[in-house]
Each structure stands twice: as C-alpha cells, then as structure tokens.
Design a protein around this nucleic acid. Structure first.
Lengths: 210, 210
DNA sequence: ATGCTTGTTCGGATTCAATTCGGAAAAAAT
DNA sequence: ATTTTTTCCGAATTGAATCCGAACAAGCAT
C-alpha cells in the first residue's frame, strides 16, 4: 500500500476495492480479472486503485490476507469449546463451521477458494496453520492421555496441511468423488484412529514394563 | 497448439520452448516469466512460441502435463514391487523415489513445484490422482485382509490428496518445521496405523458375532 | 466564513508484455 | 530446378497495468 487511508471516505474506498476484488474474482477467476473491472464494481476510477495498492497483485494479496484472517477469526472463538469435546466430534464441528463460513455472502469465499489456489495463497496460509497448531496444542493440554503420542509435531503438521488441502481440493473439484460429509467423517476417523491407536500402544507398553 | 510440428527441427523447437519454460519458471516464478525470457532461453524468436502454442498460458499447461506425466511414469513401474511390501515400507519407498525424481535435473521440477501451485496445477493433477488410486486398488487386492476396511474411497481420497499436498507444501516451505524424512515417516505411520486399527476393529467384531 | 494545507479522486497518457502477421529462409516434394 | 509446404522470425499492434498532475473535498487555523 503506497499510502494509508486517513479519512473515512478513503477507508470506504479501500474497502470497496477489496470487496469488488472478491466479486470480480468470483465472477471471472483471477487470471481474467482486470483493474478496470475491479474499479467499475467498486464504483471508483482506475487510478484510485493505485492510491492504496502498489499493483493488482497486492489487491489479491490483501484479499487473501483478509480471507485467512476471517478464517482465523472463525476458529479462535471455537477453541475453548472444541478442546473439551472428543476428537472426532471436534473435527466434525470445526469442518462444518468452516463450510458454513465459506457459504455465507453468496458463497463468495467459496468461489474465491475454488479459483484462488491459482494465486500465492499458500504464502498467506502460514497464520492459519499457526492458529490450527495452537488449537492442537490446546487440545493436547486438555487431554493429558494424548500427550504420550509420539511425533506430535510431525503428525500435527501432516494433519493440518493434509486437512487444509484435502478440504480446499474438495471444494475446487467440480465433481468430487466423495461428498463433503464423507470427507469430514473420513478426516475425523483418520485423526481419531491415529490418536486412539497411539494411546493404546503407549498403554500396552506401560503394562509390559511392569 | 495452433499447429503441429511436422519436421524434426520443429519438434526440437517445441521441446526447447518447454525446457526453457521450466528453466525460466524455476528462475523467476510463474508470475514474472515473460514470453521474451522463454524465447531467449530457448534460443528462438518470440514469434516462434506462437507457432505451436496459443498463448503463454498454454506453455505452462503443457509443462504441467509433462510434469504430471513424468511423475506417473515414475510411479507406474514401481507398482508391482510396492504392492508386495508392507504398507509403511511401500509409502516410504514411494515418497523417497518421488523426492529423488524432484531433485534430478538441477532440482528443476522441485523449483517448479515450489512456485507452481501458483498455477492451475490442480486441474492437471487428476491423472496423477488416478494413478495413485490405481496403486491403492492394486495394493488392496494384494492384501485381502485390508479389503474389510470401511470407507476405502474416502480414506484413499484423503490420503492421496492430503499426501500430495503435504509433500508439495513441505517442498515449498523455505524453513519447514520438520524434515522430509520425518514427514515420510509420519505419513507412513498415519496410513499404517489407520489400516492396522481398521483391521483390528473388523477382527474384533468378527469375534464378537461368533 | 475565508484562506490554506493536506488528503482524495480521477481518467487520459504512458509503459510494457502478449500476441499477430506477413514475408524470408529452410526443408520437402515435384 | 521449381514448386509447395513447413518453419522461423521480429517489427508492429493491441490491450491491460500503471503513473501522474490537475481538480475536488476535508480539516483546520485565523
């Protein structure tokens, strides 16, 4: 952003531009969204885009940041509730909330996510991965029996990244071979089984060594 | 492709363009590779690009197709060997081969994969997903005890997509929190545990119903 | 209110990369 | 050798992204 909006009017302009970005992106896909389209939808002149953004790319970047920030804002208040639930239920609830989130605002975010992998979304994904990492950490602390699981960093890395992408990929498939609900169940089972088996393993070893 | 190369010379040109595409992509990232760069690296005039490709985008598409095709060509001969091995070992071997594959040719493919999520790679991923699906199917047939696992389609969807993306994401992180070997072990464990637990579950149920 | 400074908007002018096109050179066919 | 087909090219065109300076609005001191 070349310049910071100081007056209310200017802030509204910036906001209109970002909103317009989402709309244009959902309609045309990222490759064929032009600055003129964004400006027209936002109801501002093309020149105005460049008052607050260095280039078109940066508009997309800010959109991505907002998307990720909103997703995190969705997750964080859920943490205290989720950490008290059984693992499968927690996974299910998290993913269902995420789905609802994507479908609000005429499914604008969903349309974006569908096209949007096309951008450098991953670069902005880090904060989301961090938030999920935090959720995992909180969860582990509320379930002391899970702390004995081996390779927690590795497994949470796999679950978080694998999970994010399995969901995003599913959303971006025109005709996915499985339903979203099946995907959710599958992820819940995958994670549930893993933790259960690890805990069982630890207990067995504990008994043997007595 | 507007035109099909008929003479040997022309085929070499096409090939040089695609190769140049990989080099330029690895060097500048997809967003800022220009047609001129590609033409210069390939040692042809800019105009020549358009003899065989409709536009720059299509060059990237063909690159993606070649990448995916090469990956499949890597996997398919491994199938007969992999299906005879224990699950963890199979996963480990597959992923290690994949890593070697990415690092050949000055790690050109790896550099591409790093940037390349930025493109519509996923659209070309389908054949790869299919090949992996086939590997899973073959594996299951060679291990009859695994056929009792519930939700095989869902679980293989998650493992394949989650696996692909966890690996790609790992490769594209400048400072990943875990090593590639840890990732491989983790994935092997995740898949291994799941199948073991499912098999155990089925056996237990089998005993109960007697 | 009035003049002054700072912030904001705008759209034509400019720049830059993608794409086109018509003809020259090379290869193949006659 | 001549004709036909294929290939190659780079200057010219096109269109979108970006810049810029004048015009307009807001804040603010007098």
């Amino acid at each position: 952003m070349a310049r910071v909006p100081r007056q209310k009017r200017a802030k509204e302009t910036v906001n209109a531009i970002i909103e317009a970005g989402f709309i244009a992106m959902a309609e045309h896909g990222p490759a064929s969204t032009t600055t003129r389209q964004i400006a027209d939808i936002a109801g501002v002149g093309v020149g105005s885009l460049y008052e607050y953004f260095d280039n078109k790319e940066q508009i997309f970047q800010v959109m991505a940041e907002r998307f990720v920030a909103d997703t995190i804002a969705l997750i964080q208040p859920l943490v205290p509730t989720l950490v008290r639930k059984p693992i499968r239920e927690a996974v299910r609830e998290l993913l269902q909330k995420f789905r609802e989130f994507l479908q609000q605002n005429d499914a604008r975010y969903l349309e974006c996510a569908r096209h949007a992998m096309t951008l450098g979304f991953e670069e902005h994904l880090e904060p989301l991965a961090k938030a999920l990492q935090e959720l995992v950490t909180q969860y582990l602390m509320h379930h002391p029996e899970t702390l004995k699981i081996r390779n927690i960093p590795t497994m949470s890395y796999i679950m978080i990244n694998g999970g994010i992408f399995a969901v995003v990929r599913h959303l971006s498939e025109p005709a996915p071979p499985i339903s979203f609900d099946e995907l959710v169940e599958g992820l819940a089972d995958m994670i549930g089984h893993y933790t259960e088996q690890e805990i069982a393993l630890v207990e067995r070893q504990g008994m043997e060594s007595r």
